[in-house]
C-alpha cells in the first residue's frame, strides 16, 4: 500500500464526508461545497483525481453496497472509508488542532 503523506484539504473533506457513510462522487462534491460555504467546489477531474489517489492509498474503498435500483444509477460508484482512512483523518485533525494551539500563542484567535 502506498505511503500516506499529508492529506490535501479536498482529500480531508472527502474523508470527513465518508465518516457519515458511503457516498458517490457527486454527493461528496455537494456536501463539501455546502460544508465550506462554496469556498471549495471541486470540479470533476479534481474530485475523481483525489478519489483515485485515496483508493490507491487504501484510505477509501469502492463499496459494493448499492441503494435500491429505482433510486440508483448504475453508472454511479460509491465509496466507503477504511480503518486506515479513519486513522488518517484523525491524525490530520490532531495535526490541525496542534497547529491552532501553537498559533494561539502568537495571535488572537
Amino acid at each position: 500500500m502506498p505511503e500516506v503523506k499529508d492529506l490535501s484539504p479536498l482529500a480531508f473533506h472527502i474523508l470527513l464526508s465518508l465518516l457519515d457513510g458511503e457516498r458517490h462522487g457527486y454527493a461528496l462534491k455537494r456536501e463539501i461545497s455546502a460544508r465550506t460555504g462554496n469556498k471549495l467546489v471541486p470540479g470533476p477531474s479534481l474530485l475523481y483525481g483525489n478519489l483515485n489517489r485515496l483508493l490507491e492509498q487504501g484510505l477509501i474503498v469502492e463499496s459494493g453496497d448499492r441503494p435500491d435500483a429505482h433510486l440508483d444509477d448504475e453508472r454511479r460508484r460509491y465509496y466507503a472509508i477504511t480503518p486506515e482512512g479513519i486513522d488518517a483523518v484523525q491524525a490530520e485533525a490532531r495535526k490541525m488542532k496542534e497547529l491552532v494551539r501553537l498559533a494561539g500563542a502568537y495571535v488572537a484567535l
Binding site: 458517490h24 462522487g25 457527486y26 462534491k29 470533476p44 477531474s45 474530485l47 475523481y48 483525481g49 478519489l51 483515485n52 444509477d73 453508472r75 454511479r76 460508484r77
Partner: peptide
Amino acid sequence: GFRAEYGDSMRLAARED
C-alpha cells in the same frame, strides 16, 4: 486510464452540475 475509470461518473456528475 483516468477517462476509462471515471469517465462515466464524471459525465453523470457534470450533467447534474
